[in-house]
């Protein structure tokens, strides 16, 4: 199975590297959203610092929707969805492979956004391990849910517009948990970020488990 996971993830990452969609479109979009948040809050540095966690994760989720749509647009073109079904690769391996490729892309995007936030909003970090752990766990949750809903949306005729409507409500727990944990890590709100991280981890486990089980059904029937 892990051979197939590496095969699928490697294929997706190679295509992204070759097409430069992630670097040429998704990353600029993400930075643009950060800048627009700055405009919307009238460049109020106190407000921007206070809400850095929420603004950061909203930006990540919007950008992730683009990356997920791109990931499954590859499979919708030229009958590749049928080709994947014909390949004999276990659906769970396809799920983990595509989710892994998304995790890699999202991590790179989050690093870029982190740099953007540091420059534009000027927050201070008080608990770096919590920050990194939250980003890692939340990224796995976003990638798992995104892969599951990506294959569901890819089978529909309205796939270009339906994905955000389906996916963003499902990712609300990730947004809430990651924002609260970031608030603690950045010292903007007095909450126990590690408790929120634990809740975030539980959410990610549910998404991964459900995705691995349900992906094959959705690949077949949607």
């Amino acid at each position: 199975m892990w051979h197939d996971v590496r095969l699928i993830a490697g294929k997706d990452l190679r295509i992204e590297w070759r097409s430069q969609v992630a670097t040429g479109q998704v990353a600029p979009f993400a930075i643009l959203v950060l800048v627009l948040f700055g405009f919307a809050l009238d460049a109020d540095t106190v407000a921007l610092r206070t809400f850095t966690g929420g603004l950061y994760w909203v930006t990540v989720l919007f950008s992730a929707v683009l990356a997920i749509q791109r990931s499954f647009a590859l499979e919708s073109a030229d009958g590749n969805r049928d080709a994947l079904r014909l390949s004999g690769i276990e659906p769970a391996a396809i799920f983990f492979g595509k989710a892994t490729a998304l995790v890699v892309q999202l991590v790179l995007l989050e690093v870029l956004l982190g740099a953007g936030v540091a420059v534009l909003y000027g927050p201070s970090v008080e608990d770096f391990p919590l920050l990194v752990a939250t980003a890692g766990v939340a990224t796995i949750g976003v990638a798992a849910a995104g892969t599951l809903y990506g294959v569901l949306a890819a089978g529909l005729r309205v796939r270009e517009t339906i994905l955000p409507i389906l996916l963003l409500p499902v990712l609300a727990p990730v947004l809430i948990g990651a924002t609260r944990a970031f608030d603690d890590a950045l010292g903007t709100v007095a909450v126990n970020g590690w408790n929120w991280l634990a809740l975030l981890g539980l959410t990610a486990v549910v998404y991964v488990a459900f995705g691995a089980l349900a992906f094959g059904v959705l690949l077949e029937d949607s």
Partner: peptide, 10 residues
């Protein structure tokens, strides 16, 4: 098939 079953960027 009629579709190529190929990835354009590979």
């Amino acid at each position: 098939a009629h579709a190529t079953f190929l990835y354009d960027d590979l």
